[in-house]
Design a protein around this nucleic acid. Structure first.
Lengths: 192, 192, 192, 192
DNA sequence: GATGAATGAGCGTTCATTCAT
DNA sequence: CATGAATGAACGCTCATTCAT
């Protein structure tokens, strides 16, 4: 068993439980018990349940970020870079169903909406490597001439939808299908 | 002010509040207050909060169903039928943001997951007019040779995503953009 | 089916339901439904749930009274009269389990306590035929020289206890046993 | 004022209130207020209202058990042992009126009925010292040849009835009367 | 720092009673 | 007379948060 600090124990326990039971189905007491800490201890590391939820998101987001970043091949064509990105993302989501469930919960809540609003309208753009692909794609005329945000929805919408349905067992995405569905995402946004 | 029965008052109040605050953020007391009825009155019309949630879904689903059905043009090509469907759906979702928010909440909850599971694995297929387009599309070789459920995710995933972002004000889908984005959905699933 | 007035329908429905579910387990709505009347109708005949409970007791008490009175043989010895009384009472309680259950509920509630208090300390003694046996028994020296109320407890206590246990199926009182157990009650109070 | 833990405060408050108002007349809020604890605190010690009711019974039963056991004289005659038992029980019930009221409520409820059913039909017989007297009494021919359960009803029925009436103030059982009424109980079940 | 007992506002739900029809 | 829809106070219970140890 890996040695962990209390903060990590709490984060892992919360992530697992929230993925399984949702935000509202997971009480602080459940988290404390699973993390084998006292109920009050959680509040040393997270100011409130809300802060915990937001903190967990940041951790998951960071991990996802690293995955996508590492696997993105910077010098290839827009198409190649998009396909890499899509494949990596979809694989990550079905290989890490707990993170996926968490992200789903998060984006489908007031927390997530606010987060995205800031991402879109705020100055900082940490997702450079993702946005860059779309900016490049549009400016080089390889993607449809639509607002970036729409192109994101067109390509990440189905990826999230498919990851969800795969995780629910509605179908199975295997090594054959994954490239095909990502190719379809590309078809949706590429200039004809 | 339109004259309404108590049931309609309750349904509207619940729909509005749930759209705004989610299932867990909406208490029966809030609904009663908004609908200007006693707390107990809700239980004359809906057996429980769960029954209310499912009942509201049925009402919204029915309304959506009628909208799509009415506008579907049965004798046209697969492509035309798909575009009609997509356009109607997207327009409905952005014209009825409360219904859309409700559907989003519903599908992102155990209720919705179970509902979809039954739709997919169950015998009955009430959504004929929708499924038929995909079945036709695949069998006539006009859509990609992928499982129907994947094709649905590929086309409805982005529609939901875009409706959400439009309603959140992240961008604005107007009469120019709507046909373009639906065309993009078609590009994702059409056989090349 | 016997033709009944609404009052009788309500009384019978309430009696059955209370015997089965207790005072607190029986709602006015249940009674109304069983009696096939509107909920408000009950209040034409009984001022409140409390009044209904007390009214039902009076009806049951009256019926029991008639049974005991009819079968009591006035001119026999104290012992004969007591045995008649005990046998009749025990038989009534096991032949009319619903009435028995109702009486049990009633006496084990604030209503019943107040009722008994009035019976004991009040002027009126409607139960003459019962009390008389004890008064006679004591004055003629055929019963132990104990307060009447104690003699009642000594003889009715076990009768109620046995009727209860018989109705619960803990044992079965048949034509053989009944005279024996009533004889035992007599043994408890008779002068040796 | 005696220093008490919260659990004891809650138990005492609940016992007092239930004795006075019955199970249904006593709300968790009333118990919390009387015990001077928060409403939620009760649930640290008792899982639910039902568990509280059963837990209190176990505590009362245990105390009663110890009292009866301690005073039972093992090597004496059946008659002596029965009289000891009856006297001890009756004295306990009138010395601890709250416990008595609680027991009465308990046995006159589904909890109590189920409890007795298990006692009677179940294998385990924890009440050895009581049952043994009756088993001995019957096998040695000193008690009437009736089912044990009936003999129990014959002797405990009047004891409960008299304790109740004493506690209600209908008469007063003093040191003179108690042995007499217990002797009367013995008369009811002894072989002539 | 770490604990977990204690809190109490708030939850979903019930039901005796009222009153417009 | 009879109805049953409407009420709202009260119920048992939960849980995010606090704080004495």
């Amino acid at each position: 068993m890996t040695k962990m600090g209390k903060r990590e124990e709490i984060a892992r326990a919360a992530l697992d439980l929230i993925a399984e039971h949702g935000f509202h189905g997971t009480s602080m007491a459940m988290i404390a018990e699973r993390a084998k800490v006292g109920a009050g201890t959680i509040y040393r590391y997270y100011e409130s349940k809300d802060a915990l939820i937001e903190g967990l998101f940041k951790e998951v987001e960071l991990k996802l970020h690293e995955t996508l970043w590492n696997e993105t091949v910077k010098d290839q064509s827009v198409r190649e870079r998009f396909l890499h990105l899509g494949n990596s993302l979809l694989r990550y989501l079905i290989d890490n169903p707990i993170h996926f469930k968490y992200l789903e919960q998060f984006f489908n809540s007031p927390y997530g909406v606010e987060h995205r609003r800031e991402k879109i309208f705020g100055e900082e753009s940490k997702d450079n490597e993702i946005l860059e692909v779309f900016i490049d794609g549009v400016s080089k005329g390889e993607m449809k001439d639509l607002p970036i945000v729409i192109l994101c929805a067109q390509s990440f919408g189905p990826i999230m939808a498919m990851a969800r349905d795969h995780n629910l067992g509605f179908f199975t995405l295997d090594d054959d299908l994954i490239p095909q569905v990502i190719e379809a995402c590309w078809d949706a946004i590429k200039r004809k």
